[in-house]
């Protein structure tokens, strides 16, 4: 039942299911993408070591078509946020994300990247990278073992499988403009918080 597998969401006349080009195209398109996800060679903290171990001989990401880890974001499909994101590092992480070409995926590896982990209450720690960039898969653990990471990577593949060429954002007319890079001030300044910040400032003036 190809139309069930791929869910083209077209009004296909009865009797025509499975013969319409878009379903087959989706499948070929996704098959090609799922076996050539190139992760970025981008290590942040402890989890990066487990990420490298995953690329090593015993767990061997190459079996999933992920053997080529590129240090340049321009050549990558997948960003594995492997470890604690600090405020000082965040502008670079966001910039790297913006520089990745579509289609791009983000896997948040470990408790720190997902929600701050044991370092959440630190003054220099970003409690969850998903507050700044969209995350596709979260892998819990501190650190996740290589097998847990592989399971997360398989989840990414699953996600790719369920995407349809018709709906994917990178073929839409309206293109994403990227995420504003946060600035380091007296504390981290997220430019998207600017209205809220100004509001607070005005409130204070009114009170005064």
């Amino acid at each position: 039942m190809p139309n069930e597998l791929n869910k083209p969401e077209y009004n296909i006349p009865p009797g025509m299911e499975g013969t319409v080009a878009i379903t087959t195209l989706d499948r070929i398109y996704n098959w090609g993408r799922r076996y050539s996800v190139w992760p970025m060679f981008f290590g942040l903290a402890c989890c990066a070591i487990e990420m490298i171990a995953t690329a090593g001989a015993r767990f061997d990401m190459a079996r999933f078509g992920m053997e080529i880890m590129r240090p340049s974001p321009r050549q990558c499909d997948l960003m594995i946020v492997s470890g604690t994101v600090t405020k000082k590092m965040l502008p670079q992480v966001v910039r790297l994300y913006n520089q990745m070409p579509e289609p791009k995926y983000v896997l948040s590896m470990g408790a720190c990247a997902s929600g701050g982990g044991p370092f959440k209450r630190g003054y220099n720690v970003v409690a969850g990278i998903d507050k700044y960039i969209p995350v596709d898969v979260y892998v819990p653990g501190c650190p996740p073992t290589p097998q847990a990471l592989l399971f997360g990577l398989m989840k990414i593949q699953e996600k790719i499988d369920n995407q349809s060429i018709k709906h994917v954002s990178w073929y839409q007319d309206q293109q994403d403009e990227g995420i504003p890079v946060p600035v380091l001030g007296p504390d981290l300044i997220d430019l998207r918080d600017f209205p809220k910040l100004m509001e607070k400032e005005q409130d204070k003036e009114v009170q005064a």
Binding site: G115, Y138, V139, P140, G141, P144, T145, A148, F151, K155
Partner: peptide, 13 residues
């Protein structure tokens, strides 16, 4: 059990 990867974390985790 280490196979805990999820698509959304806020409540699930």
């Amino acid at each position: 059990d280490f196979e805990l990867a999820v698509y959304d974390r806020i409540d699930v985790n």
